[in-house]
């Protein structure tokens, strides 16, 4: 049964991108275990505001696991100790009375801290802009069944498309590699006929942008897939490698 617990929260505080960060520990009393992790953070912030202190900056938006904004590294795991969920879907029942919970921002060279727990994930947007789309002329809506797609392919593409661009993959990776994200975004299109047309160009452009932005070289440790809130599979990385190598050998 959910009960009320007393906890300590050890949070990374950093005033700005250039400022030196440090950990600060806050005590919280009577937190209901049925509360979400972000609700706990809200309670903490209200407590800070009441004490005339600067509240903790953190990213969040939908609070239902679909936008990818929430980005906390909780007790050594991106999106916390539970698997296949985002931080906003994490509940306080995953923690015990008296526990000290450590909350850090994503730490990766390409994701600089903006403030406290907020990091700049614009790098992922830039990779998308480099090729994560298909070019089609606007016009009448084509019939949904005009292009037949095998169910298995559609499912795989859908699984890849479940990536919400949260950045946990690069945050978890010891090599600071964004391969799982790029692989998901390349795969969701490469698997479908509409995406095939620009597949080679897309793989090259997105990988080039990823490298340019300073993400690391993937060594297949698998930490990304283990921490991904959407359980995007490592096999997508193999597909990205295939797409990229095929494109380069064609040149």
């Amino acid at each position: 049964m959910d009960k009320n617990i007393n906890i300590k929260v050890r949070v990374w505080r950093q005033a700005g991108p250039k400022a030196k960060g440090y950990f600060e520990t806050y005590e919280l009393k009577n937190i209901f275990q049925g509360a979400s992790f972000l609700e706990m953070m809200d309670i903490l912030n209200e407590q800070l505001i009441a004490e005339h202190k600067d509240p903790i900056a953190f990213d969040h938006d939908c609070r239902e696991g679909i936008c990818g904004m929430c980005s906390m590294y909780v007790n050594g795991h991106p999106h916390g100790p539970d698997s296949a969920i985002t931080t906003c879907q994490l509940h306080m029942r995953k923690f015990n009375d008296g526990e000290t919970i450590t909350v850090e921002p994503w730490r990766s060279h390409a994701f600089p801290v903006i403030k406290d727990l907020m990091v700049d994930r614009g790098a992922y947007d830039k990779i998308m802009q480099a090729g994560g789309f298909i070019s089609v002329n606007t016009g009448g809506v084509p019939d949904a069944n005009a292009i037949p797609i095998p169910k298995a392919k559609a499912d795989e593409a859908m699984d890849a498309a479940s990536c919400i661009g949260c950045g946990a993959c690069a945050a978890a990776c010891k090599n600071g590699s964004a391969m799982l994200f790029v692989a998901a975004k390349v795969s969701q299109l490469a698997l479908l006929p509409q995406g095939k047309v620009e597949a080679a160009k897309r793989a090259k452009a997105m990988v080039a942008k990823m490298d340019e932005l300073g993400f690391g070289n993937c060594t297949n440790t698998g930490a990304c897939a283990a921490e991904c809130p959407k359980s995007v599979s490592l096999t997508n990385i193999a597909r990205l490698n295939r797409e990229f190598l095929a494109a380069k050998f064609q040149d």
């Binding site: 010891k174 090599n175 300073g214």
Partner: peptide, 11 residues
């Protein structure tokens, strides 16, 4: 890869 990881390590 060490550079991509950045100087700030997780606690």
């Amino acid at each position: 890869n060490r550079k991509a990881r950045g100087n700030d390590r997780y606690a």
